[in-house]
Simulated assay, not measured.
Amino acid sequence: MAIQYLENSCNDQEQITALYDNVKWTAYTDDVPNLMQAIAHSLSVITAWDNNHLVGLIRVVGDGYTIIYIQDILVNEAYQNQGVGSALMQRVLDKYRDVRQKVLLTIDEPGVRAFYEKHGFKSCDKGSLVAFAKLHA
């Protein structure tokens, strides 16, 4: 498997919708035009491709100097646990290595927690920080 990683190169609505649907992120695909606008207005989008098939995506928002927020990282179920997510994450961490605050919000499951901790993230429930979120239903 030779995965190719590309930056800011995906506006294929069909492939993006299929990827988000594959990982069951239907809150995004319930409003595809809004998803496409969000991707277009992101600070950075890095995609993973197997030939011409989109298999992964990481999306960053923020100013790129003092803070980045990793909004989405998703990998097609058939490609999970093969290093694609780690490769996407490492590309973002390398690109924004000098940015002091790298933030994300995710579900609390052991495998998810382990993935982010492997990449140097610390949970706010295990340190001196507190995190707040106000989510629109």
Rank of each mutant, 00 (worst) to 15 (best):
M36W: 03
G64L: 07
Y20L: 09
C10G: 04
S123M: 05
K134I: 14
T17N: 03
V112E: 02
G56L: 08
D98G: 01
R59W: 08
S123Y: 11
I46S: 01
A38H: 06
G62V: 13
Q80N: 12
N11W: 10
R113P: 07
Y65G: 10
L6R: 13
S128D: 04
L43D: 07
K126L: 03
L6E: 02
Q90C: 02
V45P: 00
Q37L: 10
V32M: 07
T106H: 12
L54N: 09
Y79R: 11
D12E: 11
T47N: 04
Q37I: 04
L129V: 07
E109G: 08
F121W: 12
K126G: 05
Q71C: 01
G64M: 06
V99R: 01
V45H: 09
I58S: 03
G85V: 10
Y96R: 04
G83K: 02
A40V: 02
F121M: 05
S128W: 08
W49S: 06
G83S: 08
A131L: 04
I68W: 03
V75H: 00
A131C: 12
K122M: 09
S123A: 03
N22R: 09
T106Y: 14
V60L: 04
D21P: 02
R97N: 11
V112K: 12
G85A: 08
V60R: 04
Y69L: 10
K102A: 05
T106S: 13
A114M: 14
L19T: 05
L54C: 14
D50N: 15
Q15P: 00
P33M: 09
Y79K: 06
Y28K: 02
L6Y: 04
L35V: 12
S128V: 12
L88W: 08
D108G: 03
T66Q: 05
D12C: 06
R113D: 06
G64A: 01
L35I: 11
T26Y: 15
M36A: 06
H119W: 15
Y116W: 14
D108N: 10
S44V: 13
L104R: 14
T66R: 02
M89V: 11
D21Y: 10
V130W: 09
R113C: 05
E14G: 02
Y116G: 05
D31T: 14
K118M: 00
I58H: 07
E77L: 14
N34C: 01
L93V: 03
V130F: 12
G127H: 10
K118C: 00
A131T: 14
N76L: 12
R91I: 05
S128R: 04
E7L: 09
K118P: 05
D31H: 15
I67A: 01
D125G: 08
Y28N: 01
W49F: 10
A2D: 01
E109H: 12
V84A: 12
T26G: 03
Q71Y: 04
S128Q: 07
C124L: 15
Y65Q: 11
L129A: 04
N76T: 05
S128H: 13
A2T: 07
V23I: 11
Y28D: 06
A40W: 11
Y69C: 06
A48E: 00
S44L: 12
V61N: 00
A40S: 11
V112P: 06
V75Q: 03
A137G: 15
L129G: 07
